[in-house]
């Protein structure tokens, strides 16, 4: 009766095979007496050690790491960096409660600020403690009960590109490559806080200017100052026409991410405390009354004036 014999044999083979695999597994697993010993230690466990003094105090709300001074950060004032200010304003608009931490690019997972560090809760998993980079802020805000009303459209993209290219390029030029502005504005904001050492400051200042120049040369072969400023002027004009007599862009009844994006530049160019020395870009903006008022509105609404 061969058909009967075969399954029996199979069973035997299988059991011997599983026995063998168990043997191999046993070789790598901890033998029971040692396992018992391991389970017994440590014999005494004390409460954890206290953290060093510089460690940030833990908070129940997420932390937004931005370019700022520690004083301004504690007061929740606008950041002096456009992309930080854009997302700071966005989170304020969306009503996502956060605290600001004055930081620098080395702290960021992407190499540039801002980023958000979620608050530590006892229930939070390892995954939810990872930093959130700015491109995921919209999703983060809507996941965490923020009022997010973003309706992407073709028009939106076109105007966003005005900000991301023309105005940003003029901004980079006016901040880093206009010598007067660099020493009066960029140097104290971006170089001073890093170190008190003159050599280190000189090296960082040089790196900043080189990086700005490289960024501008990505799109053109020579840096034409007049062209940069006139492009920015045209962009402001376009934005001014887009806004018209409305309170917020695209005729919305409340501000959204695009308003934050515009505010990021208008606030910094119109803020007298920035101390601009070469004001070509500021003047171009000041002639657009509705943009000036748009900035005022956001400033009063989200930064208390």
């Amino acid at each position: 009766m061969p058909p009967k014999v075969t399954p029996e044999k199979d069973e035997q083979e299988q059991s011997s095979f599983s026995r063998q695999t168990r043997k191999v597994a046993d070789l790598f697993s901890i033998p029971p007496p040692i396992k018992k010993l391991f389970d017994r230690v440590p014999v005494v466990v004390y409460p954890p050690n206290q953290l060093p003094q510089r460690a940030p105090k833990s908070a129940r709300i997420p932390s937004l790491y931005v370019f700022s001074t520690s004083h301004d950060a504690a007061a929740g004032k606008p950041s002096f960096n456009p992309s930080c200010l854009k997302w700071q304003t966005f989170l304020n608009i969306a009503g996502v409660d956060h605290r600001l931490i004055s930081s620098n690019n080395h702290a960021s997972p992407t190499g540039s600020l801002p980023f958000l560090l979620p608050a530590v809760h006892s229930s939070s998993s390892q995954e939810s403690l990872l930093p959130v980079t700015s491109n995921k802020f919209v999703k983060y805000a809507s996941d965490h009960g923020g009022r997010v009303d973003e309706s992407p459209s073709m028009r939106y993209e076109a105007y966003q590109s005005l900000l991301d290219h023309r105005i940003r390029n003029a901004w980079l030029y006016t901040l880093y490559l206009e010598p007067l502005n660099f020493s009066a504005v960029a140097y104290p904001l971006y170089v001073f806080p890093n170190s008190s050492n003159p050599l280190v400051r000189a090296s960082i200042a040089y790196q900043l200017r080189i990086a700005a120049e490289a960024e501008l040369l990505k799109h053109t072969s020579i840096i034409d100052t007049d062209d940069l400023y006139s492009e920015a002027d045209k962009a402001f004009e376009a934005l001014s026409i887009l806004l018209g007599d409305d309170s917020w862009f695209f005729g919305n009844d409340k501000p959204a991410l695009f308003d934050a994006s515009v505010f990021a530049y208008t606030q910094l160019l119109l803020d007298d405390s920035m101390g601009w020395k070469e004001k070509k870009l500021c003047r171009a903006l000041r002639t657009r009354d509705n943009l000036v008022q748009h900035r005022e509105r956001l400033l009063v609404r989200y930064y208390g004036g």
């Binding site: 060093p52 510089r54 460690a55 833990s58 080395h106 702290a107 997972p109 930093p131 280190v200």
Partner: peptide
């Protein structure tokens, strides 16, 4: 010596993030 704390791991703690960046020890 000019020290830079940089290249942080994704799950670096807030204490390490606070100390990221430049400092000079003389």
């Amino acid at each position: 010596v000019w020290r830079q704390v940089t290249g942080l791991a994704a799950n670096a703690s807030p204490t390490v993030r606070t100390d990221a960046g430049d400092s000079v020890k003389s």
